[in-house]
């Protein structure tokens, strides 16, 4: 039992399962998945599809947080990436041309990478605190996105582009496949090479890492660049899903959801040890919560409060210190204070 509850993914997974079960109680058909026109349909699939952009953004955020940093600009990068792609596609004579879409997507991703690289330079080379360095792009980025779209929403009508965020492939939503591939590749890149260990070392103790000869600067720049690309892909998905680039609202406040997903997943904001699987679970928890709010018909004026309450509870359950306190209080009446071994055991293990 202890081996299960002690696993670092136990709590995020448990929270997700509880939320899904709660939905099942309210909406009996919640777990049903049907095949329509060769596509999978169902609430669970919806959660995966709608949660895809957040999973990507949070994935990049995890790597940045592991280095002891944070990236507030991801929401802005989401907007910029979508804006540039839609702008380029809308300017083409044949919006349905695959080659044109590919070029637009590639350029949008290159720009996202450049923006992430820019953040990385500020943090690693110039030595600005991450929260300030990325705040610059968070504020300026929205302006850049509006500049690209000239302050209006750009609508596109391009079936190939629509595939990215709204299409299906092999019966699954294409976006979900993209997320699965990116998560798998990232997992391989950090755990099959020494990248993960070195990132954790930098986040765990920057000065010790310097003295052990880790070239932290380039690894930090790499992490921010990767984070930018992830946000870029998410931006493509969001704009593709609604076939519109909205420089104002696309990815708005997404950085906060992403940070929350990372924390729910079990990666500490102080840097060091990180878990990609935990972050994916964390992002799904947040998306499930949003879906729950819609399906259970929580009145719109209380949604934010409802969400905040649930998030607060999730974070408390996640906190070992809080659990220790709750368990201790429960253990006390059962075993009187003069530390019987059983009581002490609970305190140590909880």
């Amino acid at each position: 039992m202890k081996a299960v509850t002690g696993h670092r993914l136990f709590w995020p997974a448990a929270v997700l399962v509880v939320m899904l079960l709660a939905n099942l109680v309210v909406t009996p058909g919640f777990f049903s998945i049907q095949v329509r026109n060769g596509h999978l349909y169902g609430s669970l699939i919806d959660i995966l599809l709608l949660g895809s952009p957040l999973m990507l953004v949070a994935l990049g955020m995890t790597v940045v947080i592991a280095t002891g940093g944070i990236d507030l600009s991801v929401g802005a990068v989401v907007a910029i990436s979508g804006a540039l792609a839609c702008y380029l596609i809308s300017g083409q004579e044949d919006q349905g041309a695959v080659s044109g879409v590919l070029v637009a997507v590639a350029l949008a991703l290159v720009l996202s990478a450049v923006l992430g690289f820019w953040n990385g330079l500020f943090v690693a080379r110039v030595g600005i605190q991450p929260i300030i360095a990325t705040l610059i792009l968070m504020v300026a980025g929205r302006g850049v996105a509006q500049l690209i779209t000239s302050g209006k929403n750009i609508n596109v009508n391009s079936p190939p582009y629509k595939l990215i965020g709204g299409g299906y492939w092999l019966t699954l939503p294409f976006a979900v496949i993209v997320v699965a591939v990116v998560v798998a590749l990232t997992g391989l890149a950090v755990r099959r090479t020494a990248l993960g260990m070195l990132l954790e070392a930098i986040g765990g103790n920057a000065e010790a890492s310097r003295l052990v000869g880790i070239r932290s600067r380039r690894l930090i720049v790499l992490a921010y660049t990767f984070c930018g690309v992830c946000a870029g892909i998410a931006g493509l998905m969001i704009s593709s899903n609604i076939s519109t680039a909205d420089g104002n609202n696309a990815g708005l406040w997404m950085e906060l959801d992403a940070i929350l997903a990372v924390v729910i997943g079990g990666t500490a904001l102080t840097g060091g040890r990180f878990t990609l699987a935990g972050t994916v679970l964390g992002a799904l928890v947040i998306q499930t919560l949003s879906t729950t709010i819609y399906t259970t018909g929580v009145p719109p004026q209380v949604t934010l409060v409802f969400k905040a309450v649930v998030v607060a509870i999730v974070c408390l359950i996640q906190s070992p210190a809080f659990r220790a306190k709750v368990f201790r209080r429960r253990a006390r009446p059962a075993a009187p204070p003069p530390a019987s071994p059983a009581a002490a055991d609970v305190e140590v293990n909880a």
């Binding site: 070195l198 954790e200 070392a201 986040g203 765990g204 103790n205 890492s209 003295l211 000869g213 060091g272």
Partner: peptide, 23 residues
């Protein structure tokens, strides 16, 4: 300045060699 407490003993031991090899 020396130990990285988050990492395991084994990871701490190979860190300098790994840093020299590159990721």
């Amino acid at each position: 300045e020396g130990l990285i407490e988050d990492l395991t003993v084994g990871e701490n031991i190979v860190l300098a060699l790994q840093a020299a090899n590159g990721w």
